[in-house]
Design a protein around this nucleic acid. Sequence first.
DNA 1: AGTCTATATTGACGAACGTCGATTCATCGT
DNA 2: ACGATGAATCGACGTTCGTCAATATAGACT
Lengths: 121, 121
Amino acid sequence: MSTAKVLPLLEPGGVAPCCPPLTERPLTAEEAERSAVMFKALGDPVRLRLFSLVASYEGGEACVCDISDVGVSQPTVSHHLKKLKEAGLLSSERRGTWVFYRVEPAVLAAMGQLLTRAGAA
Amino acid sequence: MSTAKVLPLLEPGGVAPCCPPLTERPLTAEEAERSAVMFKALGDPVRLRLFSLVASYEGGEACVCDISDVGVSQPTVSHHLKKLKEAGLLSSERRGTWVFYRVEPAVLAAMGQLLTRAGAA
DNA sequence: AGTCTATATTGACGAACGTCGATTCATCGT
DNA sequence: ACGATGAATCGACGTTCGTCAATATAGACT
């Protein structure tokens, strides 16, 4: 089955953001637990590059073969993509021989919201 | 000396953002290295809570004594605050017996920009 | 079936991390 | 000078992480 278990950082199927901006009020322990998963996933240079490669690819998705040149071995690339997927930041789909990854736009928006000052821009 | 060595994630003294939005173009290895430090710093639940506590505190700054109730020991709180400071997310100032931490707003803005879709909102 | 390519999984390794208790340092009142 | 309080540092511990080589799985094409 291609639908691996992932941590839903947004309500499943919905776009409800997990948490208010970090500046609005203190995060609860549980909110912090959920949000930290996303930040942690982007907290590795290789993963951040992989994520950026997928996010900036034409059509919003990229085959693994298109983004594998980040200086680590193929198993390591696969491992990092899995981590990003488990964090809810990417989703994947197999098409023939290739596997395509795409960004979950709602999660990206939720993260951006966390870092946006409540009142200001 | 209170000016501990920290990684400058923005140009020192400037507000120049480190990197374009993750969706605009692939990050270079060096850009990823620098940005990952920030995400990693927020990738721990306790640190994320501490950061949120400081960021949402009245006046934009908080004494350590005001935010220490996050379920870990005092040395651990101190350790995490140091990490946040080394990542450039917080700055600190001693005032009498107490030490106050405040958010570096430029860095927060830079992180928000990373996660903002280039064209869209 | 057999072979080739693309991706995932396994198992192992050293390095980094989060945590704590004990101690030290800094500052303020007496 | 002294004791009390807030915060940082030290040293140690178990755990998690990033990485790789080896192997396995999935699909395409003979």
